[in-house]
C-alpha cells in the first residue's frame, strides 16, 4: 500500500510534465491540424533556459528559492515563447494551406535543427543543477519504507492544477479563446468574420511554448539534469498523451499525461524498467483501437 502510494506520487509528478507539454500539442493540432513535431524541442529549450537562469542566479549567490523560481519561470516562459513564435512564423506559416505532409516534414526539420543547435551551443554532456528546493515530509511509514512527498512535488502538482484551471478559463471565457475555437472550426469563416487568424495561431503557438517552458522548468527542478536530447522522447510521450486523452481536448491532454506518468511509474516499479516505453506505446495502440477518438475526444462525425 505504501509502495503504491509512493508510485502514485511519482507518477502524478511525471504526468504533470507530460500533461503540460501535451496541451501544446493538442492546442496546435486543434487549431491548425498539424503535429508540431518540434514541440518536444521547444520543451527542451525551456529546460535549458531554466537551467541557465538558475546558474546565473547561483553565481550571484541568490538564496531565496521561491523568488529564484519565479524569476526563472518568467525568463523561461518569455524566451521559450520566442522560440515557439519564431518556429511557427518561419517554418509553418508559409506552408499553411499547402499539402498535408509539407508542414510535418518542415516540423521534423525544425526538430532536428533545434536539437543540434542546442547540442552545438551548449555541448553534449548532461548538465547538472544543485537542488533548489529541498525537504518534504513523510506521509506514511511502514517498517523500513517511508512514503515521502517533497515540497517540490506538492508545488508541481499545485502549479499544474492552477495552470490548467487558468487555461480552461482562458479558452472558455475570453475573446482570445473564442477566436481560437472559431479558427479551429472554420478558419476561412473566422477570417471573414474579422478574426485575425494569423495572430490567433501565433498566440496559440506562444501559449503552447509557454506551457512547455513550465514543463521544462519542472523537469529541471525535479530531475536536476538536462541535456539536448530530452525533448525527443518527452515530446513523443506527450503527443501520445494528447492522443490518448483525445486530441483537441485540454482536459484530455492533462488526463492523458497523468495516465502516462502513472503507467510509467507503476511499470518501472514492477516490471523491467527498460520496457516502460514499450508499455506506454502498447497502451496507446490499444486505446486507439477501441476508442479512436481518445478518452475525452469528441467522436467526429464524418462529413460526407
Amino acid at each position: 500500500m505504501e509502495y503504491f502510494l509512493q508510485q502514485l506520487i511519482n507518477g502524478l509528478t511525471l504526468g504533470a510534465i507530460y500533461g503540460l507539454i501535451a496541451i501544446g500539442y493538442t492546442m496546435v493540432y486543434g487549431i491548425v491540424g498539424m503535429i508540431n513535431f518540434a514541440h518536444g524541442e521547444v520543451y527542451m529549450i525551456g529546460a535549458f533556459v531554466s537551467l541557465i537562469a538558475f546558474t546565473i542566479l547561483g553565481t550571484f549567490a541568490f538564496a531565496n528559492p521561491v523568488v529564484a523560481i519565479l524569476i526563472v519561470l518568467v525568463a523561461a516562459i518569455v524566451f521559450t515563447a520566442a522560440y515557439g513564435w519564431t518556429v511557427e512564423r518561419i517554418a509553418y506559416r508559409p506552408l499553411r494551406g499547402s499539402f498535408r505532409l509539407a508542414p510535418l516534414i518542415s516540423a521534423i526539420g525544425v526538430s532536428i535543427f533545434l536539437q543540434n543547435y542546442v547540442h552545438l551551443l551548449q555541448g553534449a554532456k548532461m548538465k547538472p543543477l544543485q537542488p533548489v528546493v529541498t525537504g518534504g515530509f513523510v506521509l506514511a511509514q511502514d517498517g523500513g519504507f517511508a512514503v515521502r512527498i517533497t515540497y517540490l512535488q506538492i508545488g508541481i502538482v499545485v502549479a499544474t492544477v492552477v495552470l490548467m484551471a487558468a487555461f480552461t478559463l482562458l479558452i472558455q471565457k475570453t475573446s482570445l479563446g473564442r477566436a481560437q475555437r472559431a479558427c479551429e472550426q472554420d478558419r476561412k469563416m473566422a477570417a471573414l468574420l474579422g478574426v485575425n487568424v494569423d495572430r490567433t495561431i501565433s498566440i496559440t503557438f506562444v501559449m503552447g511554448a509557454a506551457l512547455a517552458a513550465v514543463a521544462g522548468l519542472i523537469f529541471t527542478l525535479y530531475y536536476g539534469a538536462v541535456d539536448f536530447f530530452i525533448g525527443f522522447l518527452a515530446g513523443l510521450k506527450a503527443f501520445t498523451a494528447a492522443v490518448l486523452g483525445g486530441i483537441g481536448s485540454l482536459p484530455g491532454a492533462m488526463l492523458g499525461g497523468v495516465l502516462i506518468g502513472l503507467i510509467e511509474a507503476f511499470w518501472s516499479a514492477h516490471f523491467p524498467i527498460a520496457y516502460k516505453d514499450v508499455a506506454v506505446f502498447a497502451i496507446l495502440v490499444i486505446v486507439l483501437i477501441f476508442r479512436p477518438t481518445g478518452l475525452l475526444g469528441r467522436p467526429d462525425v464524418e462529413k460526407v
Binding site: 493540432y29 503535429i35 498535408r100 510535418l104 513523443l236 503527443f239 501520445t240 492522443v243 486530441i247 523491467p272 527498460a274 520496457y275 516505453d277 514499450v278 506506454v280 506505446f281 502498447a282 496507446l284 495502440v285 486507439l288 483501437i289 479512436p292
Partner: peptide, 28 residues
C-alpha cells in the same frame, strides 16, 4: 491490421511508437 483504420495523423504517431518499440526491444 489494428491501426490502419485510424485517421492519418494517429497512424503517424502509432507507427512512430512502433518503430521505437522495435528498437527498445532490440536494445534490451
Amino acid at each position: 491490421f489494428p491501426v490502419l483504420r485510424l485517421r492519418g495523423d494517429y497512424l503517424a504517431i502509432v507507427t512512430l511508437g512502433f518503430g521505437e518499440m522495435i528498437r527498445i526491444v532490440l536494445l534490451n
